[in-house]
């Protein structure tokens, strides 16, 4: 495929088009992605999450500077919410990163969640692969502004950076389950503001008391992303974490789990499609839905009835 060849030669336009096709579920994207698979699995994938307005985009903007100085090519996927009512979205994360927009070693793509919950978007997994094949390393995924349970990123990323800010709540917030459990590196941004040291202390206390001892102790750092202070240390910590999981074998486990999940998802999609297109006669599906709706049939028995011939036949 022409688009695959162009992408493997480093054509950003080809990567951009392929991401759109994957997001729109264009059948051509499947072919391209299967051709790309062999060229992926090289990059460090970093998830960045935290509450809206904490400064995730600004932290990333400054981290890109550090990575560029080290000679890395950086891919960024910035996810913002899609309206559940109109399907529209304002994608504004890259406002903070526009200084890198003409740098050929940086690729930034904004994505709408398009009905996905958990902080990521429908096309995120495919977009990660595409940027990986384009030769970007690291690939930084910025989730939507997260509340307490947008933890989906932990499944896609090797390292998760949590951006917090001073003054968001007392130590009870830090005790709760959810987002704070998935951090590999923590940074209290806007550290020039009052309460930064208290926020750092509370996060450290949470990490020390609330979790079973782990081989990796997540560092809690301070930064002021507006002027870049402390960002070098954040990048160093992400590097150390990646080296650590490579050495401990945790990276292999993570990669294996995500390969398994991806395969299951593809199987499930294909199977559902096969059943609704090939097994069910035209109109039969709607008729079954109608009967389920009228409580004449339950969904479990309906599924059983549909799958019976397949299970018997093979």
């Amino acid at each position: 495929m022409e688009i695959v060849e162009r992408l493997l030669k480093g054509d950003a336009g080809a990567a951009a088009r392929l991401i759109s096709m994957a997001e729109d579920e264009d059948p051509r994207a499947v072919k391209a992605l299967s051709a790309l698979h062999a060229h992926t699995g090289k990059a460090q994938i970093i998830g960045v999450t935290g509450p809206p307005g904490a400064g995730k985009s600004t932290v990333i903007d400054q981290a890109v500077k550090v990575y560029r100085k080290k000679g890395c090519k950086v891919g960024i996927l910035a996810i913002d919410p899609t309206s559940p009512f109109t399907g529209g979205a304002i994608l504004g994360d890259r406002i903070r990163m526009q200084q890198h927009s003409t740098d050929p070693g940086v690729f930034i793509r904004s994505m709408g969640t398009r009905g996905w919950t958990g902080g990521l978007s429908k096309g995120t997994a495919s977009a990660i692969k595409i940027l990986d094949a384009l030769g970007m390393d690291p690939i930084i995924v910025e989730t939507v502004g997260a509340g307490q349970s947008e933890v989906e990123i932990v499944r896609s990323a090797h390292s998760v950076l949590i951006v917090e800010v001073p003054g968001l709540g007392d130590d009870i917030q830090a005790f709760k389950a959810g987002i704070l459990e998935i951090g590999d590196v923590f940074v209290v941004n806007k550290a020039d503001r009052e309460g930064a040291d208290k926020a750092v202390a509370e996060l450290r206390a949470m990490l020390e008391t609330c979790q079973e001892p782990r081989a990796w102790a997540p560092p809690v750092l301070k930064a002021s992303a507006r002027d870049g202070a402390g960002i070098g240390e954040v990048v160093d910590a992400l590097d150390s974490h990646f080296a650590f999981i490579k050495q401990s074998g945790a990276k292999d486990l993570k990669d294996r789990a995500s390969a398994e999940r991806e395969f299951m998802e593809v199987l499930r999609d294909r199977l559902a499609k096969y059943i609704t297109e090939k097994v069910v006669r035209k109109g039969e599906f709607d008729a079954l839905v109608e009967r389920i709706l009228r409580r004449q049939l339950d969904p479990y028995s309906a599924a059983e009835k549909l799958l019976e011939p397949i299970e018997k036949g093979k």
């Binding site: 950003a12 336009g13 951009a16 899609t82 309206s83 109109t86 399907g87 529209g88 979205a89 304002i90 994608l91 504004g92 890259r94 406002i95 526009q98 927009s101 003409t102 690729f107 930034i108 793509r109 904004s110 709408g112």
Partner: peptide, 26 residues
């Protein structure tokens, strides 16, 4: 946005080079 489009907004003071590069990546 309200009409269902995905709108990428880049903010102020953009050079034509930045705009075009953004348009290609997006």
């Amino acid at each position: 946005r309200d009409a269902g489009f995905e709108v990428i907004y880049t903010g102020l003071h953009q050079t034509p080079e930045q705009i075009v590069s953004t348009a290609v990546q997006e």
